[in-house]
């Protein structure tokens, strides 16, 4: 097990190294240079000023040389300076990461709990009215665009009912736990609803397949209660393929909740990476994307470890 983990961590580092090179190169291929964005928003900048800034930001150097400088500094713990924020990348990254962690972890847990419950109920009576209803809701969750769902929530719960704040992380001057929770309800609900549909379908399919297996019939024949059969014997086996899907989604969630973050003014990793790419902020975009890659790789490692725990026959 220890050897497996060490090997995977080594592979992770290698992937990050390759990804850093690829991402830096790809951002460099985008049209225009980083200062074009600055000039577009500040037409007052004269060509002389722009030329000076190009030297200050090191943009007069070839792309690969800039990458080499970044890599060398990164190996010594300096992940670089964000051009747009004029601050070290880690300083910019930290608050975005905290927001994302709050949003993603809570919505992920909520959607997993909902999906497990609904998927199991659905799988117990496939084709029944409850299964049809849950399937309909799941498909609706998968199909509804996130920005629309978010906007509808704001219109209903903030504009019409005035129950919840429409946006932001907290009320200035309040910031109590209750206030933070109230600000989290709509973005978490939006993300959870968007994810629950897909997860529910996977849990349902996997459970239906598992419930037909011989060992389940054996468990029932031994006189185990239906609850024990479903929750202990079936669910444990059914979770193996579901875990893969969830682990992959978890990584995506860290960088892909752009719309939710934008609609509810909860700036996290997705928004930060998107803005950094658009404004050619190489260092920030690179570190943000590498972080999302790292989360995906680590969540897959966690999923692999969970397989072994769920099914002792699996050798790592």
């Amino acid at each position: 097990m220890r050897r497996f983990i060490l090997r995977r961590l080594g592979q992770t580092l290698l992937v990050l190294l390759v990804m850093s090179f690829v991402i830096y190169g790809l951002i460099g291929l985008m049209p225009g240079d980083p200062l074009d964005v600055m000039i577009a928003s500040n037409p007052g900048a004269s060509p002389e000023v722009v030329a000076r800034l190009r030297v200050i930001y090191g943009l007069d150097q070839p792309l690969m040389l800039r990458y080499a400088h970044w890599l060398l500094a990164a190996l010594q713990g300096d992940l670089g300076f964000s051009r747009t924020h004029s601050q070290p990348v880690l300083v910019v990254l930290a608050p975005a990461l905290w927001t994302t962690c709050k949003l993603m972890l809570i919505s992920f847990v909520v959607s997993v709990i909902l999906a497990l419950g609904l998927g199991i109920v659905s799988a117990l009576r496939p084709g029944g009215w409850l299964d049809s209803l849950i399937s309909l809701a799941a498909f609706a969750g998968i199909s509804v665009p996130v920005f629309w769902l978010a906007l509808m929530m704001i219109l209903v719960f903030a504009v019409e009912l005035h129950w919840l704040p429409a946006s932001g992380r907290e009320t200035v001057g309040d910031g109590s736990l209750l206030d933070v929770v109230r600000h989290l309800i709509m973005p978490v609900a939006t993300l959870a609803l968007a994810n629950t549909g897909g997860f529910t379908r996977f849990v349902r399919a996997s459970m239906i397949e598992t419930l037909r297996m011989d060992h389940i019939r054996t468990a029932r024949a031994k006189g185990n209660g239906e609850g024990r059969v479903v929750l202990i014997h079936a669910l444990r086996n059914a979770m193996i393929p579901v875990l893969t899907v969830m682990a992959l989604s978890f990584g995506t969630l860290f960088s892909g909740a752009l719309l939710t973050e934008t609609m509810f003014a909860q700036p996290g990793m997705g928004k930060m990476i998107y803005d950094a790419i658009l404004s050619n902020d190489f260092n920030l975009a690179l570190v943000g994307l590498l972080f999302a890659t790292l989360i995906t790789l680590l969540s897959n490692l966690a999923a692999d470890l969970a397989y072994a725990w769920l099914d002792p026959r699996i050798k790592l």
């Binding site: 906007l151 219109l155 903030a158 504009v159 429409a166 946006s167 932001g168 001057g173 700036p267």
Partner: peptide, 22 residues
């Protein structure tokens, strides 16, 4: 006593915030 400049990048959401009084 306080001026808060709040960023809501999606202008549809910004309008909804205005209508809700946020």
């Amino acid at each position: 006593k306080r001026v808060v400049i709040k960023t809501i990048e999606n202008t549809a959401a910004l309008q909804a915030n205005l209508e809700s009084g946020d």
